[in-house]
Amino acid sequence: MSALLALKKLHVAYGHVQAVKGIDLELHAGQITALVGANGAGKSTTLLGISGLVKASGGSILFDGDELLSLAPHHIVQKGIVQVAEGRAILGTLTVQENLDLGAYTRSDKAQIATDLEWVFSLFPVLKNRANGLAGNLSGGEQQMLAIGRALMARPKILLLDEPSMGLAPLMVQEIFRIIKHINQTGLSILLVEQNVKQALKIAERAYVLENGEIVLQDSGANLLNNSKVIAAYLGT
């Protein structure tokens, strides 16, 4: 089975600093694939390279067989790859509803947009209750829900999630991962970048471990959870 998204020898640099050093990675349709590792390993840079927000300096990014390297970020969104940024990046001076509306800015199918909005509200009832309030007044967990909901309004084929559990209380972390799994069960493919290695590996069908810009391990999420190197380096036992 061919991959929906395939990175081949991908290099991403900031000036003369190579942050991602020729990695290969595949995401298959309908799966959660996790990219885990320590802070500074190159995980977020990989997502930025896929999204076109940082231009890759070499290699290939294939989405359903089409090369993405030359595309502008908004064209990548239009193709169906949507990123939820690290730190959420919600627009705090706009309302919750306005943030969600912005998620659908590339679309013109008004009836389907309305249906998708109701689906997002069913996933995150707090957003419906707070729709007319300022997004900046939401808690950190609620803002993460809004960031995911806004991305879903673009009707992505692939959802790129960058550190969705960052800064959240343990109970909210559990809720966010439950929602990610639920969204995936609707058929949406997800590439998950996460420092919470244990939680990421629990829900990922496939996972890659990134160190210093290079893939050092890859396997099923379940196998990596029991890998002695992963346990020693990331799981603290």
Results as ranks from 00 to 15, higher is better:
Ile190Met: 08
Gly149Gln: 10
Lys181His: 14
Gly141Met: 10
Arg178Gly: 10
Arg150Glu: 10
Asn223Lys: 15
Asn227Gln: 10
Pro156Phe: 08
Gly141Pro: 03
Ile183Asp: 15
Ala154Asp: 03
Ile180Thr: 09
Gln218Gly: 01
Lys202Leu: 14
Pro164Ala: 07
Pro125Gly: 10
Met145Ser: 08
Glu163Asn: 04
Asn132Lys: 15
Asn223Leu: 09
Leu160Pro: 04
Glu214His: 07
Val197Asp: 08
Arg206Ala: 13
Val126Ser: 06
Gln143His: 02
Gln185Glu: 15
Arg150Gln: 04
Met166Lys: 07
Asn132Val: 00
Glu205Gln: 15
Ser122Met: 05
Val197Ser: 08
Glu163Leu: 08
Asp162Val: 00
Glu194Asp: 14
Leu134Pro: 03
Gln174Arg: 13
Ala200Arg: 02
Asn137Phe: 09
Pro164Trp: 04
Pro164Phe: 11
Leu146Cys: 06
Leu217Glu: 05
Ala222Ile: 04
Ala147Asp: 05
Asn129His: 11
Lys157Gly: 11
Arg178Gln: 14
Leu225His: 11
Pro125Ser: 08
Asn132Tyr: 13
Ser122His: 13
Leu123Asn: 03
Glu211Met: 01
Gly141Cys: 05
Leu217Trp: 03
Leu188Ala: 11
Tyr208Phe: 15
Val126Ile: 14
Leu225Ala: 11
Leu168Lys: 10
Leu171Ile: 15
Arg206Pro: 00
Gly167Asp: 11
Pro170Asn: 03
Ala131Trp: 02
